[in-house]
Design a protein around this nucleic acid. Structure first.
Lengths: 240, 240
DNA sequence: CGAGCAGTTGATATCGTTCAACTGGTGTGG
DNA sequence: CCACACCAGTTGAACGATATCAACTGCTCG
């Protein structure tokens, strides 16, 4: 994976959000990317750290998580290729959560100060990045609803729907591709226990929505899953 | 409440986030505010609506909520004076949640197109608004953790701590001022039932952290409440 | 071959829900 | 000034969803 491919991924992402003119593209092209690989489970950043670069996930999958005092982990977002992982460190140097690779992951990192210069020169780019932040915010609100109000079965279903929809929108994989999330991670993302997640997944399998026995999770009936989940992608603002 | 007072509130809010020079302030002052009053329970915006203005809450309290298909309501944020209610409609015209007054509320509204012109002229203002969006995002992440991982008692305590801390930071009221949130709203915000919220509040009262019998809620021992809540305000990035 | 880890199962415990009745303010119309 | 309605809050009893604990399976990898 080279800097050029990273630039391509970033351009594609931004242009999914809105138009850029040639000057904007040239400005972007002036960035130098530092390519970084992460093993599964490795952390890119940790809660409390000071960070002065911004990364985009250009390959593999990641998640954002926070710990409660008791040691419980809550995953608050999943990330797919094309996602900015920490645009926030442009304006808020101190990390407020952990960012962790789910699979082998490839990151394209830019120094925060250089990116700052880019957005000063290109209001259009600044606007799209801000828009991305806003869409992320909307997804967090949906997560609060998901964890707060849905029962275990539809909560899990909703999570899977979102993951699959975002990955598809990013062009990273088909709806029925393998889902690289363990049951433990699913539990941490839904606020349930692994035991209960396992039982609910079995139910979703019986209902014909997914498969997974001794092999990674895979969605086989997306429509059914969406129904169970009350999933409507509007909150993603068609962009993720 | 006049447009001038609205401008003052907005300036104060922005300068809590970062510095502005005189040109920025002049640019802001060119905005015309439309002052709007909301009765308790009245909606400013509803999920799905198209909105072409941006409002700041300059008096009273509000909340953001979403509905699940089953009709369950999830409150995903509380708002205190000085909060931008819908900066997002600058870039995402379609609302993805409801915004509702908790008390009598006063809003200062600006047309989205005018505000767009302001941020085009002043990168510093754009930067602070984006920063505000990022901080809001961090608070949503904390809410996911709160609803997903904490038990009922500390979940409620955490909510109260956040409300009180933000209100204090905004200079709107002291820590021990009345909290204008009903037990039903507390239930909707925590993903619990009113019955259980009532029982947990009684426990927090027995523990000496709050009072409320036949009168509005009030925090009387903030430190104790913070302890129960595992509350650490870092996720608000000192700004709210 | 053994260790380790994700996943699976069953039995039991618990937290929070549900349902239904009741209290006590507050506001309104007669 | 009373009667009534209404609404937030309160209480108790029974129920149910999810957690907890502990044992076991079956990969995968060294």
């Amino acid at each position: 994976m080279t800097g050029n491919e990273a630039l391509g991924t970033m351009l594609a992402k931004l242009q999914r959000l809105g138009p850029l003119d040639d000057a904007d593209k040239a400005t972007l092209a002036s960035l130098t990317f530092h390519i970084r690989k992460l093993e599964p489970g490795a952390h890119y950043s940790e809660d409390g750290e000071t960070i002065d670069s911004c990364c985009m996930l250009i390959g593999g999958y990641a998640c954002r998580s926070k710990l409660s005092r008791g040691g419980g982990r809550q995953i608050v977002a999943f990330n797919v290729p094309g996602d900015f992982l920490d645009l926030q460190h442009l304006l808020l140097p101190r990390a407020d959560h952990n960012i962790e690779a789910l699979t082998e992951a490839t990151l394209a990192c830019v120094s925060a100060s250089r990116l700052t210069r880019v957005i000063e020169r290109s209001p259009a780019i600044a606007r799209l990045l801000w828009q991305d932040t806003l869409i992320e915010g909307s997804m967090f609100r949906e997560w609060v609803l998901n964890v707060g109000r849905r029962d275990a079965r539809s909560r899990i279903a909703h999570l899977l729907c979102e993951f699959v929809a975002r990955r598809k929108a990013a062009g990273a994989a088909a709806v029925d591709a393998l889902i690289p999330i363990t049951q433990e991670q699913l539990a941490d993302a839904t606020g349930l226990t692994t035991v209960h997640v396992n039982r609910m997944l079995q139910r979703l399998r019986e209902e014909g929505a997914i498969t997974f026995r001794n092999s990674p999770l895979r969605v086989i009936d997306y429509d059914r899953l969406k129904n169970i989940a009350e999933f409507s992608p509007r909150y993603m603002h068609q962009a993720a």
